[in-house]
């Protein structure tokens, strides 16, 4: 399978909202991630399943992936906490996207590629960034195909724009 691990786009600062879960995307985050989606589209990326965290900024980021989704979306609290076997069990499909938060996404990538969740700091994701993995979704089984920072994807979008 191909797994796309996607960090939410830029959101409001923590102080502006009662809880971390309620932070919405900023206008700039919205616009920048829309460009990321265009770039993924140019790379022929499609998803037959999208799992996303229930926190507002992840919900809004997953929603922007709409044009790339052929299958179902599912909200799961397992993406708003440390990566777990229960989360990996949910990852089923041929091309799946996970939309969530740091540091848990980096830990997920590290776990799937090296078998060690503690190595997450070696696989950082910036806001709106995408890590592209391939293989069976199990620890130390997936291969890193690409790590695409949001900025690189936006540059790609600009380069491919008609």
């Amino acid at each position: 399978m191909e797994l796309f691990v996607i960090r939410h786009a830029e959101a409001d600062p923590r102080e502006a909202h009662p809880t971390d879960a309620e932070r919405p995307l900023t206008q700039r985050g919205h616009k920048r991630f829309a460009a990321v989606v265009k770039a993924l589209e140019a790379l022929d990326v499609r998803f037959d399943r999208v799992l996303h965290s229930p926190w507002l900024r992840a919900v809004q980021t997953a929603d922007l992936l709409g044009p790339l989704i052929d299958g179902e979306t599912e909200v799961t609290a397992l993406l708003a906490t440390e990566p777990s076997a229960a989360l990996l069990a949910k990852v089923q499909g041929a091309r799946v996207a996970l939309v969530g938060h740091e540091p848990w996404l980096s830990a997920t990538v590290a776990w799937l590629v090296t078998g060690d969740r503690a190595l997450g700091t070696q696989f950082p994701l910036d806001k709106g960034g995408v890590v592209w993995l391939e293989g069976a979704c199990a620890p130390r089984t997936m291969v890193l195909r690409a790590s695409l920072p949001g900025g690189a994807l936006r540059a790609l979008k600009r380069a491919t724009a008609p």
Partner: peptide, 15 residues
């Protein structure tokens, strides 16, 4: 299933 509560939670935060 926890998905029910998570759905309610996510809906409650939408602007």
């Amino acid at each position: 299933d926890p998905r029910c509560d998570t759905t309610v939670e996510a809906l409650s935060r939408l602007p």
